[in-house]
């Protein structure tokens, strides 16, 4: 345990919960925007892990990695929203169940 006084396990439990909530969102929700938000939750869960491990391992690498992954998540949202916006213009929906042109 270090100066923060919070055991590492708590961080891991938090991040695991966030990850599972995100994953459930991706699998259950049918609105593409909500799915996008759920994906962000999954990425943020990983960030919490990285920072927590970084502090408890006394190794700054993890925090640098978390910064990179935050930047990456921002880029991903930008592209994702653009794609969904275009979909909404063409099809007037962002419901994933309506995406049925391509299937076998």
């Amino acid at each position: 345990m270090d100066a923060t006084g919070i055991p590492l396990n708590w961080f891991l439990i938090l991040s695991a919960c966030l990850f599972v909530i995100g994953l459930a969102g991706v699998l259950i929700k049918r609105n593409a925007i909500v799915v996008l938000m759920s994906i962000e939750l999954m990425l943020n869960a990983a960030n919490i892990n990285l920072v927590a491990f970084s502090v408890y391992n006394n190794d700054p690498t993890g925090q640098v990695l978390a910064l990179f992954s935050i930047g990456l998540a921002a880029a991903e949202v930008a592209i994702g929203l653009a794609i969904l916006l275009n979909l909404n213009r063409l099809r007037d929906t962002v419901d994933l169940n309506d995406l049925t042109i391509l299937r076998w």
């Binding site: 991040s15 990850f19 995100g22 994953l23 991706v26 593409a32 799915v35 996008l36 994906i39 999954m42 990425l43 869960a45 990983a46 960030n47 892990n49 990285l50 927590a52 491990f53 391992n57 690498t61 993890g62 990695l65 992954s69 990456l72 991903e76 592209i79 994702g80 794609i83 969904l84 275009n86 979909l87 063409l90 099809r91 994933l96 995406l99 042109i101 391509l102």
Partner: peptide, 29 residues
Amino acid sequence: KGAEAATKYFIIGGLSSGFSLFGISLVYG
């Protein structure tokens, strides 16, 4: 078709990066 494919690719790709990043963070830990 392209818009639909891009949406599917993006969501699956995001899911995949969520999984790999979480896995990588655990490996790091």
